[in-house]
Design a protein around this nucleic acid. Structure first.
Lengths: 262, 262
DNA sequence: AACGATTTGTTCGTATGTATC
DNA sequence: TGATACATACGAACAAATCGT
């Protein structure tokens, strides 16, 4: 026999999917639900808790519990696009990408730090553990109805050798309006030739929960998009981690299959 | 002031990250923790619940609460691979992919149904709503230490026109050992020329929770990988949805950026 | 196979804190 | 300020899963 709170959760779920409870609508109070289901308020809370975990409901302190809208997802395109050559670059590429989806974007002024590479960073960039890195961190926002919605957090790591060879603007906490890819090509002749992406999810950390305004229970995961860009020599020249709230985003990849002989 | 259960959760978290509580280890019982933290058992349970949501702990009925191992992720490669031309195909491609990672795989006998296309299916396949579809569903397993671990659920949709034109094995509930891609090419001369992938996450449904043996609270999401394959004419010929538990998998995409003139 | 001990799971009642209007 | 709603916390009891005897 299923638990009482499971039954209640199933019933509420049914009322939501049938349209009897519509997105945005407020549920009866926990007390009322307890009466209606002939259960204690705690049991009703357990049922609601389950549905909050499934992102069907949202409780607001002092206000009530509300049916959530099915989230509209923003598409993050990973396909190497001919036009801009962007696809997961730094600030500039991001703004271009958003503009393609008829939305407007803003990026924060980058923060810059010099750090020693830890094991995964060193492995991905093909350098030694403890070697110096330029770390550039940026917050990305999408402007919706005049308000900036926090959308992603991007941290890029560059070998310090690039700065030594002349790309000094990398270590200045300023935007690089033409994009870092173009900047590296102009100053050092380094052309981005290929990349390797990894995408996974994990629970958000405290910083991400605050920045994205996510539920603190950790029920909504974040996407982590890792990109390692290599130049024409096959040398890794950039390692980027971008974090997105997983309930508002999706990834899109378009590709042609290689033609075969025969 | 933070809630008591938050403090307890933070303390347990600290003990885990410091290594005082190691992966696999059992925590003290809820009663003991309640004594130690001078809190009620329910408050301790709230703290544990939070850490279960973050997939740091796991409770087993009748046994205790255990520290989880950081999950090792299986890589799903989406890059169009020259050799097999696989990358997200049906059964055959899956087994090849797993073999590349030194693991062995098994697929269930496909179940087949004929259904009417709903709106999203029709849109992706470029056919009309209500048009007939061949639906092939397969369960995928990875063999680890002699036991089959449920790994993914794949459902592919094909326009019924393909069957009418001669690809009759599509609607038989049998494996197609050479792969459906090769079969379609041999029988109809249809060659897969490109694809469009979408990747997102959502909470698991009841079937997925059972099949993958996931925690029923819905704290662990599933990846959904959608692939629409087009032939050399640009016509969609397959629409595939694959579901993976998100805590055991990651996606990998490798690509060369298109060369530019200049 | 049956039973008891242990541990988490479920449910209740109650009280108080705190955000919102 | 008061009323309303969810959030936190406690104590208690029984249910159900697991394991060893």
């Amino acid at each position: 026999m299923p638990a009482r709170y499971e039954e209640i959760a199933a019933d509420l779920r049914e009322r939501i999917s049938s349209g009897e409870l519509r997105p945005g609508q407020r549920l009866p109070t926990e007390r009322e639900l307890a009466l209606r289901y002939d259960a204690s308020r705690n049991t009703v809370r357990d049922a609601v808790l389950r549905l909050r975990g499934l992102r069907l409901l949202e409780s607001r302190h002092g206000l009530g519990t509300f049916v959530l809208e099915p989230p509209v997802k923003f598409a993050i395109t990973l396909t190497p696009s001919e036009g801009t050559g962007s696809g997961g670059g730094e600030g500039r590429a991001w703004v271009d990408e958003v503009a393609r989806q008829q939305r407007s974007a803003r990026t924060s002024v980058p923060s810059v730090a010099i750090e020693q590479a830890d094991e995964p960073q060193a492995r991905e960039l093909g350098i030694g553990v403890g070697d110096m890195l330029v770390v550039r961190h940026q917050q990305h926002f999408i402007t919706d109805k005049g308000v900036d919605v926090p959308w992603s957090l991007r941290t890029s790591f560059y070998p310090i050798a690039l700065v030594d060879r002349g790309a000094t603007r990398l270590q200045r906490p300023e935007d690089i309006p033409e994009g870092t890819a173009a900047y590296l090509e102009q100053t050092l002749g380094i052309r981005q030739a290929g990349y390797r992406d990894r995408i996974w999810v994990r629970p958000p950390n405290d910083y991400e929960i605050r920045f994205f305004d996510m539920p603190p229970e950790g029920t909504v995961p974040v996407f982590v998009h890792q990109r390692v860009v290599t130049d024409t020599e096959g040398e890794p020249c950039r390692y980027t981690l971008t974090v997105y709230p997983a309930d508002r985003n999706e990834f899109v990849i378009e590709a042609d299959l290689p033609a075969r002989d025969g």
